[in-house]
Design a protein around this nucleic acid. Structure first.
Lengths: 161, 161
DNA sequence: ACACAACCTAACCCTCACGTCAGGGAAAGG
DNA sequence: CCTTTCCCTGACGTGAGGGTTAGGTTGTGT
């Protein structure tokens, strides 16, 4: 079973991320190895996160790959990737990894419908929402300051032209 | 020459920042020691920066206090404070300390009117302005993502209420 | 003159979210 | 066999500060 991809591209910058998702039959739609699992490089490509970052998130319990290959390669499911994408969306809110971990768990717990603690969960969710709202406000202010400073620079530019 | 402030407040939380700006005559407007110079605590209060941060900026050559007291206290002029405030405005743009240092110098150089390198200076200024504009764009996007996520949270909140 | 409270100093280590090597193993093909 | 390309772990580095410690300075009240 040979491999279709990489038709002789000898030079590369090094550890990049692209390629070799073993055995997708010729003309397959999207690279997909045996069990619908992606390896880290492909995940990085899809999410725009660095390999280091993805590993780091695992180290901190944020997204642990569903499986490992015999040789120890991390193998990510679509759900894993989705989790990573949620994290990406949270990032601008400036939550810490720990907070993100908690929020992820919380959201998962809430999705399990059968939660008896529903009340407590929504309470915690409300707190996260408040924190998020606060951060959004802070961000807005930062943006305003940034715009202001950029304007100042523009000013000095054509004042000194 | 006695001091007006602190009319016997024995308990305090500790290192705060307020107080003893020596000898402002009774009923003075704003605390002012001898030569219109402020000590670090007062600067912190005015700028909203932490003592640590202000010292850190000095360590990195961003704002070196105009003077020191006999005993080694940092003494800041109004110009120093102004510099700190400029830094505060730059911060949301995500420049590194080094970049901010350069930009501060650049702006100062430009103000010295008599610059022969005016051209080169404005060129550098233009580059900073471009960087700033780029960052503003990035910030806007971050804000959008943040708002989006906050909305998602709000959604889950009343979907699960 | 002395004690004192409030302020300051330098010097240290700690945190967070990664980046950056270094050295070695795995997957696939020639 | 060898080569590529990808992946692994482990360890150290970085940026922008935070916190703590042990001690010096300043102005004041008595």
């Amino acid at each position: 079973m040979p491999r279709p991809d990489r038709p002789t591209s000898p030079a590369s910058t090094s550890d990049g991320a692209a390629d070799r998702p073993p055995a997708g039959d010729e003309g397959a739609v999207t690279a997909r190895p045996r069990a619908g699992l992606l390896q880290i490089g492909q995940v990085a490509e899809r999410t725009g996160l660095s390999l280091r970052t993805i590993r780091f998130y695992e180290e901190n319990g944020l997204v642990v790959p569903t499986a490992r290959s015999e040789g120890g390669y991390r193998l990510y499911s679509d759900a894993d990737v989705a989790r990573l994408e949620v994290i990406k969306r949270m990032k601008p809110l400036g939550f810490s990894l720990e907070e993100m971990r908690q929020l992820l768990t919380l959201l998962a717990d809430l999705t399990v419908a059968g939660a008896h603690h529903r009340e407590a969960l929504t309470d915690r969710l409300r707190m996260f929402h408040e924190a998020a709202t606060a951060r959004v406000g802070a961000l807005r202010e930062q943006l305003a300051v940034a715009e202001g400073f950029a304007a100042t620079l523009a000013d000095r530019l054509d004042r000194a032209r």
